[in-house]
Design a protein around this nucleic acid. Structure first.
Lengths: 207, 207
DNA sequence: TCCATCCGGTGACGTTCGTCATGACCGGAC
DNA sequence: GTCCGGTCATGACGAACGTCACCGGATGGA
């Protein structure tokens, strides 16, 4: 029996995935959590062989949770299950020691087989996505540039961003200008879109 | 037996929902589609009692598909299943004749019961969400303002938007200015965020 | 040690943006 | 028939933005 921990914030999807895996005779779901910061405690209690982690979760994102989980329960392999095949996500997942990286776009039949293969010690990554991740290059943004650009997504004006981050407006403009040029955009809105798209806005992903 | 059509673009989620509903003895999935424009043809062939439709789908969005389905197969009730509880979405779903509106955030146990209740002729809508939809008021944007603001999400400069929509730059600025004020924002980025959030950017949602 | 890079800040410059006034055309409502 | 709203357009104005040059300091690798 392969013991599986399931971490997914959307209740309907979590329950449905549990039902899907419940059909497999050699898979046993030993824990279900809805928040990233519940992953490690649940894993310590349930001792799963494989943890299936969504990335977008409240409390703690799945990638950071994966890093903590690898440290706390090294025997537990990690499979990331996400909507977005962003190169930066895959790159970070590999750095963090994940064994698998699955897209929710993939056919449902791949889920069980991916869990079995990772439980057996294999790496499971979509080849096309791996190529994309390598060809993209790594995150060119400095930590501060990333932070300022990320803040610009929810804040309307440079003054707002400066206030939020306790910086001068001039400094914010400089960081934004740097980010815009590194990313190849023409203004901060386009820069934020591009960076978001490549998975460069998630925290802790330096160049 | 309740005959159900399942429309969801993400393969993993679609398969998982099918497994979840497969556990119910009185529910039979008679069709599965991954695109909005496959909904009506599949319904004509399979004659479901209930159609479970995601909103975000390629080809045709779930709300438009719902409208076409109500016209083509009036006997088939529609349940919308979506990630986002945007007031504009719910409002449009009701206008289009949907019987149910479910969030993927809800517990998995609600899915089967919602299908049973709609099959029996009831309306199934989260009460809190219904209140939010009513208190929001309807979409204040004119069709042109909506179109311009939606275009500003993916286009960087006003010149780009003007070129895309074959308008003068001045006209684009005027429409954006109108949208910004109606929505209560300080620039087009914030306006787009707010409008998106309320479900006002989807096509065919006039005030 | 030097050098590059990041960080924070300032000031100046030209461009883009958001606003407003104004005008014209068209449609439907009263 | 008149009014009103939406659409398209122009021109002008001030504010916000993006870029650049420049500064000092910290840090870390060559």
């Amino acid at each position: 029996m392969i013991r599986v921990l399931l971490a997914e914030d959307q209740g309907m999807v979590r329950g449905a995935l549990a039902a899907l895996l419940g059909l497999e005779r050699d898979i046993d779901i030993v824990a279900e959590v809805a928040r990233g910061d519940d992953v490690v405690p649940a894993a310590l209690a349930a001792r799963p062989d494989v943890a299936l982690l969504d990335i977008e979760m409240p409390g703690l994102d799945g990638l950071t949770a994966a890093a903590q989980l690898r440290a706390a329960v090294p025997a537990c392999r990690v499979v990331i299950l996400t909507t977005f095949g962003r190169p930066g996500y895959l790159r970070r997942a590999m750095e963090v020691g994940a064994s698998g990286f699955l897209l929710k776009d993939s056919p449902a039949s791949e889920l069980a087989s991916a869990i079995r293969r990772t439980a057996a010690g294999a790496r499971v990554v979509d080849p096309a996505l791996a190529v994309a991740a390598l060809s993209e290059g790594s995150n060119p943004l400095s930590e501060r540039e990333r932070e300022v650009l990320a803040a610009s997504v929810e804040l309307a004006t440079i003054a707002d961003i400066a206030a939020r981050l306790s910086l001068s407006e001039g400094t914010v403009r400089n960081h934004l200008s740097g980010a815009i040029q590194k990313v190849g955009a023409r203004n901060r809105a386009e820069a934020a879109r591009i960076a978001e798209d490549k998975g460069w806005l998630a925290p802790g992903i330096d160049g």
